[in-house]
Computed example of a mutant assay.
Amino acid sequence: MLELTVKGIKQARALIWNTFKELEEHELEALSQDFPNPHFLIGPFHKFFLASSRSLLTQDQSSLSWLDKHPPNSVLYVSFGSLVKVEESQFLEIAWGLANSKQPFLWVVRPGSVEGSEWLERLPDGFLERIVEGRGYIVKWAPQQDVLAHRATGGFWTHGGWNSTLESICEGVTMICSPSFGDQLLNARYVSDVWKIGVKLEDGFERGEIQSAIKKVMADEEGLEFRNKIRNIKGKVNLCLKKGGSSYSSLEDLVNYFLSF
């Protein structure tokens, strides 16, 4: 499959990327050596249209009113996207990791995302008692871009898919990454080791590591460093989309490229 993808890319007249120059300039320069086709970096794509127009599932807007009740940067948002499934044992570790962290959290549990469960039947005994006084809120699906942009959201525990990674970067929200397959593995490594705007869980879903990662991202001094770095990148996003910015100019170049045929 990868070989066919590379072959197809080499045959393409041009390549359009959902990224921006300031984030991956060196990577794209290296890629251009092997793929001399014209490259157009016009992302982030999601900034060009409303989030609600892309959602595959019904978004629970009550998550936003719940966030309104919390202080700035205090809530951990947890969502593993529209495809990832977890085993029951992993689900239990996630639940106890969240409960033991004592950090407010908004948790998206997609129906059918837990093996052998329709929705919340596998929540461990005693879990709900541990998250009293509004410390945790569970929904089937959330308006992710609005959640990430909310002042109360201070961290994002994600599967590390590119769309989610880019959306988090655009809103300046630090990340905990639990990659499963494909590009998620590389994205997570970039978050933790290259851009240094979050952490990657190295041992899968283990409650002790989960609790430690949440503390590191949300409370420790290292989390403040992550936040400063990602807010710096967020500023570059805002500039690249304005007239004269890198993505704005690349989009103009793409239009002119189409008109040249």
Rank of each mutant, 00 (worst) to 15 (best):
E118H: 12
E118W: 00
E118L: 06
E118A: 08
W119Y: 11
W119I: 05
W119P: 10
L120A: 08
E121W: 06
E121V: 05
E121N: 09
E121T: 12
E121S: 15
E121A: 09
R122E: 14
L123V: 14
P124Y: 10
P124K: 10
P124E: 10
P124F: 11
D125P: 14
D125W: 06
D125V: 15
G126H: 10
G126I: 11
G126C: 13
G126S: 13
G126N: 11
F127I: 09
F127E: 07
F127P: 12
L128F: 12
L128Q: 13
E129C: 04
E129N: 13
R130P: 01
R130S: 15
R130G: 00
R130Y: 02
I131S: 00
V132N: 05
V132W: 00
V132G: 05
V132C: 01
E133C: 02
E133I: 01
E133F: 02
G134E: 02
G134C: 03
G134M: 01
R135Q: 12
R135M: 09
G136L: 03
G136W: 03
G136R: 02
I138L: 12
I138P: 10
I138M: 07
V139R: 07
V139S: 07
K140V: 11
K140N: 11
K140G: 12
W141F: 07
W141Y: 11
W141P: 14
A142L: 09
P143F: 05
Q144K: 10
Q144Y: 09
Q144I: 11
D146A: 14
D146C: 05
D146F: 13
D146E: 15
V147D: 06
V147M: 07
L148W: 05
L148M: 05
L148V: 05
L148I: 06
L148P: 11
A149K: 12
H150I: 01
H150Q: 03
R151Q: 07
R151K: 10
R151G: 00
R151E: 09
A152D: 00
